[in-house]
Amino acid sequence: MKSKSIKEKVMHIVFLAAAMVCIMAVVLICVFLLANGVPAMGKIGVFNFLLGKTWRPGQDIYGILPMILGSIYVTAGAIIIGVPIGIMTAVFMARYCPKKIYAPLKGAIDLLAGIPSVVYGFFGLVIIVPFVRDTFGGSGNSILTACVLLGFMILPTIIGVCESSLRAVPEEYYQNALALGATHERSIFKVVLPTAKSGVLTGVVLGIGRAIGETMAVIMIAGNQARMPKGLLKGVRTLTANIVMEMGYAADLHREALIATGVVLFVFILLINLCLAAIKKGVEQ
């Protein structure tokens, strides 16, 4: 009996320890990022760092506003392209799709979600960049290119979440609307979709998270010029790209400034998580 209880206790502690590791991981990530990044912000000046329009490590000028704006523009563009297509496709999957083609379609979209971002980036490089260059001019490595590719990349996230929330709406809502003489479309878009609103919103926010955090695909196609974004067809550098581009050779303050860039990115993601939590809370009420 006694040996049993020891085994029980040991395993209990093991399980607890595993759970603690997860919390430790978050704590460690926060501590290391903040400890290495915040001092740099202090040295550069928070104001100069966040709102500075020039990024010239050679002269110790570190303003990441161009990158913040770059990330925001690119994400916004991706949302403008990805959200309508994603929601509509989710509606198709949940409400139009014949049973026969549902399984392969679902499989394809799952696969899209799993394709590595380098592969996406490479695809963007060989297809979208030349297309944009030939159609609109410029080098092709541009905000527009990044928006299109990212919009495409966030599709699986949006489709997946939206579809499952559409399917969670009781069938009776649809039938009630139909029984009032509404068409299939009106029932879906005026009754079913609004009922699934919070799920759709969650999907969009997750999409934003994915777009803002995307690194490799953006680097490969966005041009990465560290200057204020000037137009749709001009190159742009995002926060994520900034880190990867220069981390390889950065030292001292430059390096710390890059880590501080990571901190800013981290804060963005935390804000997005807060949004998600708020949406969840809104649903429960």
């Binding site: 009781p170 009630n176 009032l180 009922t195």
Partner: peptide
């Protein structure tokens, strides 16, 4: 047809909107 022949279901299920919008939906 469904405009001429209305239906009330077993389970009351107003849409997730205000009463006014519910009634005005049709």
């Amino acid at each position: 047809l469904r405009k001429r022949v209305g239906m009330v279901f077993q389970k009351p299920l107003p849409f997730k909107m205000s009463i006014y919008d519910n009634i005005a939906f049709g």
